[in-house]
Amino acid sequence: MAKVAQLAMLELSDEELDRFTGQLDAVLDLGGRLDAFDVADVPPTAHPYGLTNVFRADTVENDDDVRAEALAAGPEIEDGRFKVPPALGEAL
């Protein structure tokens, strides 16, 4: 579970890890009911409606206002860029 939390980029306390583990086990048991199905020759469904080849034209849409509003939503902006703490490793 700690590995899963790390992959999910969540910091969980020991209490939360314990609680979630129990709850997730119950849901995974529910998932285990799928074993009753023989799916050997069944293809997976990623989409309920079988579309293919949906494209857009290679045409630029540029809206300065939209861009400005999007940047304004940034938690921390410097020189028109999004500011973040150093990546691990760069700190040293």
Binding site: E16, F20, L24, V39, P43, T45
Partner: peptide, 29 residues
Amino acid sequence: KRRIMLGTYALSAGYYDAFYGKAQRVRTI
């Protein structure tokens, strides 16, 4: 958080086929 954890687990290496992959096939059925 609970659902993110569950989903991360269902997609992770070694579990994908048993959970997510299987669910997508049952969906077909």
